[in-house]
Design a binder for these strands. Structure first.
Lengths: 349, 349
DNA sequence: AGATGTAGTCGAACCGGTTCGCGTACCGTA
DNA sequence: TACGGTACGCGAACCGGTTCGACTACATCT
């Protein structure tokens, strides 16, 4: 019934009460050797009666694995985006599916105590690394320590590393093409904050690259906006855009948190979506559906990514020498109601 | 330099290379007994050279504590609110401050494997329990297992339990008084989702109680709205409210996630804030500042709460017999720009 | 000089599991 | 009846730390 905290509740005690040796109890529990039905039942009865659960630390010490993985998240000071939050939730759920626990480590800087504990004290069997920068010292640190890990996102060209990522460049390319097909000639990219971009945040750089390339390919005019990850910044950014570049008729965004502000700025400028202005981008699906009108966008499949990353990690833990795998996900653009044909240009008479 | 994963890197190896016994290395590291400067230096040199870090499981087993706490969060399926997210971040940060790691356990239901592991396998030294319901089996389970824990939120009257919470009833009372002082006579409470309220979610019930009481005290008309935790629901809710009860001139909210929708509904109805309609409530500060106009609201001090909860937990871990403490936080209402004097009633001639 | 104290170190036991090698009882078979 | 195989269980070693008691060498006090 109750927990094993207080009293001397351990495998030896179970063994004593069941009249067998400690090893027999262990085997009865793990099934790694045969134990007679009668004995097993007797042991099980004692266990059920006392509510015994094996001590995790002792087991980890003996087995040489902790049944725990580390999840390295951006530090709390930089507020997590909703997408990241979703991802954390999905990871925890995916881990629970395979009976793994998740240890959280907030680490942006490189010489982080919590991160160091993770890699060097055998606290976890493997690590999921979020918000990887294009040059990222933590990747080297993990490799150095021979700690199995999978990146959520990927650094610059590193074929030995295992990761799952979203194809920001390709997806933004699709968004641009979609807008071009609708007749838009001048469009903007709403990117993340200048600080984040400056640290070499992969998705921002790749979104930019995809944008520049696609804009060129379709012969469009393109403007990139660096915008803080909050509604206020979004409002300011878009207000400024509309003032300076009134010819812009569409927006592709990778900055979800700014969306409420985008909406306000458009409202204030009297631009109605999608009649006067189209919006699309890469957005977690519930944000897309929270927007009015619902956003036509590439829905980030956070749950999928988490599951994939987890199974990659599990595989990597069981066989660290296996060849590295990369998964570049490219979810389709879901058509909703925020994009439409470009407005007919207002010609001066 | 590198980590201790691969090779036989343990305290015995350090001892051998430094030419001392294992216990001496242990004492040199912990400082629990005197070790001569010369020896200590020699040991430290070896450690630095090899990059040794003690194995966490072994240490936990020997010391009888894991230096890890569990954070029980609502399951991922129910999307976490921004406030909860903030809180998770703050907790992790507060834990890092005192060199504790955080193990995440998503658990809403009662017979959760991950939760059970937490309480019964000695995986953590203590637990922080989020989203406590008014009747909550997990509280009993933790007490049963003699696991030190602190609630974020509190169940019905339970003086032995240790918790930190926000004074929803009192704060909503303050909000109502603030609105009454401004001359509003008909106001609404924007509460959380019907499902959540049905499960006996404390804050919702206490907010309701505080609202009902204050409305009565000030002789106002009050309407309670149960509203899903997302912008869409917020929009529908408020649209309906404005249609059915056009006399309502102000809103107190405990539902942050619905705010963007609230804004849209008011815009569509042509009500301008704060001229035609006032809004206040209990809101994480950055949401309050993301709103336009910025919200006059009681800012939830998530970082504070996390720090307080953490220190309570640390204390409880070191002395489980200490008397239980409760902390009912009541942050002041920050005056911003979303409330103003009630509009002059439109009299029919 | 002998008694006393103290700083520094060692060896062994312990934390609570897992795993390996071996012994024994019982089975069927030659 | 002797033999080999199998099913079952035991004891001991091990995982990598911490901690306690004891021992040594040397300084101090009387």
């Amino acid at each position: 019934m109750s927990g094993p905290q207080g009293s001397g509740m351990n495998i030896g005690e179970i063994a004593r009460r069941a009249g067998v040796s400690r090893s027999t109890v262990s085997y009865a529990l793990s099934g790694k050797r045969q134990v007679s039905d009668a004995t097993r039942r007797r042991i099980q009865d004692v266990i059920d009666e006392l509510g015994y659960r094996p001590n995790a630390s002792a087991r980890a010490l003996a087995e040489g694995r902790t049944r725990t993985i580390g999840l390295v998240i951006p530090p709390a000071s930089k507020r997590l985006t909703h997408m990241q939050l979703d991802f954390v939730g999905s990871v925890v759920e995916a881990a629970a599916q395979v009976d793994l626990d998740v240890l959280l480590s907030p680490s942006g800087g490189d010489h982080d105590r919590s991160f160091e504990r993770l890699v060097s004290e055998s606290r976890v069997d493997g690590v999921l690394l979020m918000e990887i920068r294009i040059e990222d010292a933590r990747v080297d640190r993990l490799r150095d320590a021979r700690m199995p890990f999978v990146g959520i996102g990927h650094p610059a060209n590193d074929p030995q590393m295992c990761w799952v990522d979203i194809d920001y460049a390709g997806l933004i390319g699709h968004c641009v093409r979609h807008l071009a097909d609708l007749g838009h000639r001048s469009i903007a990219l709403l990117n993340r904050s200048p600080e984040l971009v400056a640290t070499g945040y992969g998705p921002s750089h790749r979104a930019r690259a995809g944008f520049v390339r696609a804009v060129e390919e379709h012969g469009l005019k393109g403007v990139e906006l660096l915008c803080g990850d909050d509604a206020r910044s979004g409002q300011e950014c878009i207000a400024e855009l509309l003032a300076n570049d009134p010819g812009i008729t569409a927006l592709a965004t990778v900055n979800e948190a700014a969306l409420p502000g985008v909406q306000r700025a458009l409202d204030q400028a009297g631009r109605s979506v999608p009649r006067d202005f189209s919006i699309t981008g890469i957005v977690a699906s519930h944000w897309a559906e929270d927007f009015r009108p619902a956003l036509t966008a590439a829905d980030v499949p956070t749950a999928d990514m988490a599951t994939q990353a987890m199974s990659l990690l599990v595989e990597r833990i069981s066989d660290p020498t296996a060849p590295a795998q990369h998964l570049l996900m490219s979810p389709p653009i879901t058509l909703r109601h925020s994009t439409a044909a470009a407005p007919v240009p207002h010609r001066e008479p």
